[in-house]
């Protein structure tokens, strides 16, 4: 009798162990919002760094912002989605070249936009997780202005990475896709690449001068 009781106990406990093991594993992972919060806090640290304040430090400051922010970006995926189906026809070298230019373009626009949020507060409104994809909605509160800033994330190698940013209802990826499409159609990939390079140089000159 005792033997049965012990066996039953052992079986039940091992069953419990098995049943709850996946749960505890899941709890160990970081959610999209948590992960985003860490990176946003790093960004705010850069923006509030006294040594990096002022116009004279702009270049260095934006470099630092880009470092912190782009770490959370799945840049290749963003570039791919921004280009759309034309991506399929590109060689690996072309894809890397395009992704690199895309990242530099974001430096001139997205990073510059983020750069003005120095004394702002960020409030986290909502986190929607659907399988491997998630959306985190935040609000930047700047004085009496509220700027909705949403992020779309997807799991890559166990980490949530951003693949789109929606600033004031405007999706970055969609906005770029609307621009890239017609240029690809008219001037082809080489035309697009040279246009991107030209834009980056011009924006760089503006920043310096």
């Amino acid at each position: 009798m005792l033997r049965y009781r012990l066996l039953a106990l052992a079986l039940i406990s091992s069953f419990l162990l098995l049943a709850f093991a996946p749960l505890s594993l899941r709890a160990g992972e970081t959610g999209p919002r948590q992960q985003l919060e860490v990176s946003v806090n790093q960004l705010l640290d850069v923006l509030r760094d006294k040594e990096l304040k002022g116009d004279g430090q702009q270049k260095l400051r934006r470099e630092r912002i880009a470092e912190v922010v782009f770490l959370q970006f799945n840049m290749r995926r963003m570039a791919k989605l921004s280009l759309g189906r034309d991506w399929r026809g590109l060689s690996e070298a072309e894809r890397s070249r395009f992704t690199e230019l895309y990242q530099n373009l974001l430096k001139k626009s997205y990073v510059a936009t983020i750069d003005q949020f120095a004394d702002e507060q960020v409030s986290y409104l909502k986190e929607i997780i659907k399988g491997e994809k998630a959306e985190v909605r935040t609000m930047i509160i700047s004085g009496s202005r509220e700027i909705p800033l949403n992020y779309k994330l997807q799991v890559k190698d166990g980490k949530w990475l951003i693949y789109d940013v929606i600033i004031e209802n405007v999706s970055l990826v969609r906005n770029y896709r609307s621009q890239f499409g017609p240029i690809m159609k008219k001037k082809g990939f080489d035309g697009l690449i040279s246009k991107m390079a030209e834009k980056i140089t011009r924006a760089g000159e503006k920043e310096d001068g």
Binding site: L105, S109, A112, N175, S178, F180, I183, M196, A203
Partner: peptide, 16 residues
């Protein structure tokens, strides 16, 4: 700043 990275500002604004 918003249009600083736009390749075609007209299309960027229209899409926005």
């Amino acid at each position: 700043k918003l249009l600083g990275g736009a390749l075609d500002p007209y299309v960027a604004v229209r899409d926005a």
